[in-house]
C-alpha cells in the first residue's frame, strides 16, 4: 500500500485525494457544531438571587458571549469578570500538563476571598478529573460571598464528543446551547452525591433535571453563623 502510494505520488495522482483525507480527519475531529435552544429553570432563580445585591460582581467561567454580558449587565447592573476556564483546560491539554490543573486552579483566581456575588460555572466541571474539579470547586467556594450563588450545569448523559458548549442567554427562561470544538471531552457524568461533595461548603437550593439531559443546580453560600 505504501509502495502504491509512493508510486501514485510520483505521478501526482494522489495530491487531491490527500487533501480530501485531511479535510475528512479535521471534520471528524471537530465533530458537529450545533446550536439549539432549551428551557432553563435555574437561571431565573440565579438572577433573582443577585437582584438583592448592589452592583454585584459576577464571575463567568465560560467563554465570552457578548449577549450574556449585555444581559447580565442590563438586568443586574453588575460587574462581570469573564474567566474562560475551557481555554485553560485546552491550554493544559496542548502543553500536556493536565496533571498540573489542580495546582493551577488553586492559584487561578485573583479576586479576594468572599468578594464574588455570583458564579456562572456552566458545565465546566464535567471536563475535569476529580482532583482538578475539586480544586476548582474549592477555589470557587472561597471566592463566593456569604449568600452568594453559583449556577452549575452537569450532564447526565455519557457523551464522548469533543465539544464545549457556549450557553447563550436568550432570556431568563431560555438558553441557547452552542457547541464549539474542544481538545478534551467530558470526563464523566457526575452523580448528585459527587456534586454535593465537590461543593460541600455550599448549600444546594435548587436542582432541576432538564430534558436537555443536563442537571441544573443552584448553590448558595450560607451566611456564617453568629
Amino acid at each position: 500500500m505504501a509502495d502504491a502510494r509512493s508510486l501514485t505520488d510520483l505521478f501526482g495522482i494522489l495530491g487531491p485525494r490527500r487533501a480530501a483525507d485531511a479535510a475528512a480527519v479535521v471534520a471528524s475531529s471537530v465533530t458537529q457544531v450545533t446550536e439549539a435552544s432549551y428551557p432553563t429553570k435555574a437561571l431565573q432563580k440565579f438572577v433573582s438571587c443577585l437582584h438583592g445585591a448592589d452592583h454585584p460582581l459576577l464571575l463567568d467561567l465560560g467563554p465570552v458571549v457578548g449577549s450574556n454580558v449585555t444581559f447580565f449587565g442590563e438586568q443586574l447592573g453588575c460587574r462581570i469578570r469573564v474567566e474562560d476556564v475551557a481555554d485553560d483546560i485546552d491550554r493544559h491539554v496542548k502543553d500536556g500538563t493536565l496533571e498540573q490543573l489542580p495546582a493551577y486552579f488553586a492559584a487561578r483566581f485573583t479576586q479576594a476571598p468572599g468578594s464574588v456575588d455570583g458564579i456562572l460555572c456552566w458545565d465546566i466541571l464535567d471536563y475535569l478529573d476529580q482532583p482538578a474539579a475539586q480544586a476548582l470547586a474549592t477555589a470557587l467556594c472561597r471566592l463566593l460571598k456569604a449568600d452568594g450563588c453559583l449556577l452549575g450545569l452537569f450532564s447526565t448523559a455519557e457523551t464522548r464528543e469533543r465539544v464545549y458548549t457556549k450557553y447563550v442567554v436568550v432570556d431568563e427562561s431560555t438558553l441557547r446551547y452552542r457547541t464549539y470544538p474542544a481538545l478534551r471531552q467530558r470526563q464523566r457524568s457526575l452523580l448528585n452525591g459527587d456534586i454535593i461533595k465537590l461543593f460541600k461548603d455550599l448549600r444546594v437550593t435548587d436542582s432541576f433535571l432538564m430534558k436537555s439531559k443536563l442537571r441544573e443546580m443552584l448553590f448558595r453560600k450560607p451566611a456564617p453563623r453568629g
Binding site: 465570552v64 442590563e74 447592573g77 460587574r79
Partner: peptide, 23 residues
C-alpha cells in the same frame, strides 16, 4: 453599553453602570 461580537476576544471585567434599566 458593551457589545462583544462573536469571534471577538475579551479577557477582563465588564462594568456596565446600570443604564436606567431598573432599581
Amino acid at each position: 453599553r458593551v457589545a462583544i461580537a462573536e469571534g471577538a476576544h475579551f479577557r477582563g471585567a465588564v462594568d456596565m453602570q446600570r443604564a436606567g434599566a431598573k432599581a
